[in-house]
Amino acid sequence: MDYSSEDDFDNYIQERINVQRRISTRKVIRDFQNPFDYYSANEFKSRYRFSKDIVLNILLPLINADLLKVTSRGLPVPPIYQLLVALRFYSSGSFQIITGDLIKVSQPTVSRIVKRVSYLFCLKMQRFVKFPSNLETIKEQFYSIGSFPGIIGAIDGTHIPIQNPGGSYAEVFRNRKKYFSINVQIVCGPDLQIYDIVADRPGSVHDNRIFQASTLKRKMEQGIIDGILLGDSGYGCQKYLLTPVLQPETVSEENYNKAHIKTRNTVERTIGVWKRIFPCLSKKLATNLTTTCHVIVATSVLYNICRSHGIVEEIDDIGYTTTTRQNIRNTQAYNREGLLFRRLFITRHF
């Protein structure tokens, strides 16, 4: 090449040296431990909650195309490692643990990966978190649990702890137990799959208020979803949402309550298993509120994938039994039409 001066040549040499330095410090694939080779099948599953085969053949194809985004910041983290980083976070709830497991991945990088992967799994919610098309089969399965007819789901709320979000509305997220949380509404089926989730309400919002404002309630009122939900006494009794009798006076009412407790226990078990598979839901999530909601929904999607592949049966026993004490509150929102329907329902079936 032709250089007009010695200074131009020196500048060219220095520029090439700087380029080589930048290339030598780029992250490449060998900077990471390869979990597929490093861990045994059991060790891999205990860390990432899925088998190697399901991660490669089921989970990765769901989001791979969206993660194959080339940036101008050197070599990006490969999609498979981004997926594993997110799965490790869901199963630990700690950025530091992930940083230790995968060397040369900074905590800010982990945070960005968790945010991105969680959002992509949220986009799959309508595919994986939904009521089955054949509700008659669901009613039969629920009936086999406690001889309670017409049930298509059990509903309950659960609090996901978060750090103080700050700002002028922070106290809205403080729940009745005095810690900050997201109050998440869950509807589950007889096989402990999640059929519906609302994961964006502050901890101070009551369970019944969440349901009253939900899309699910409107669908049930319009007959789009045909069946009955079972909820605890914190909900208002409706024709499509039956609650326990607070003070049973007849044998029929006592039988109704026993069947109600036994059948509704599925939602308590679902929440327990869900949180046990993904411990991040039991810790104070330190992500921003939007990402926190995405993490909650993403884990519900992954949980249903777990259930559909039968890989969590061994941890279903979480201490709940069919005699779980009924959660009776004095804040039941009474509905005259709903109470009348419940009375006739008990007379007819119990």
Rank of each mutant, 00 (worst) to 15 (best):
D7Q: 12
F9H: 08
Y12S: 03
Y12V: 00
I17Q: 13
R21E: 09
R22S: 07
S24M: 06
R26I: 07
R26Q: 14
R26L: 13
V28N: 10
F32M: 12
N34F: 06
N34L: 07
Y39C: 06
F44P: 03
Y48E: 02
R49V: 06
F50G: 02
K52V: 01
D53G: 00
I54C: 10
V55W: 10
P61C: 09
A65Y: 12
D66Y: 08
V70T: 12
T71P: 01
R73G: 03
I80R: 13
S91R: 08
L102A: 06
L102K: 03
P108R: 05
V114I: 15
S118E: 04
S118C: 01
Y119V: 00
R127C: 02
V129W: 14
F131T: 02
F148C: 00
F148I: 00
I152A: 10
G153E: 09
G157S: 13
T158K: 09
I160R: 04
G166E: 13
G167L: 10
S168D: 15
S168A: 13
A170C: 07
R174Q: 13
R174C: 13
I186M: 09
C188W: 06
G189Y: 09
P190A: 15
I194S: 10
A199G: 03
D207L: 07
I210K: 11
A213L: 14
A213T: 08
A213V: 01
L216W: 00
L216E: 09
L216I: 02
M220C: 01
I224F: 14
I224Y: 14
G227L: 04
G227T: 04
D232R: 05
G234A: 06
Q238W: 03
Y240A: 03
L246T: 12
Q247C: 10
P248I: 00
T250C: 12
E254D: 11
Y256S: 06
N257H: 05
N257W: 06
K258W: 04
R264C: 12
W274Y: 14
I277G: 02
K284I: 02
K284P: 00
L285I: 15
T287S: 11
T290H: 12
H294W: 13
V295H: 07
V295E: 01
A298I: 02
S308P: 00
S308F: 05
I311N: 09
V312R: 03
I315Q: 07
I315P: 07
D316Q: 11
T324H: 14
T324G: 08
R329Q: 09
R336I: 06
E337A: 11
I346A: 11
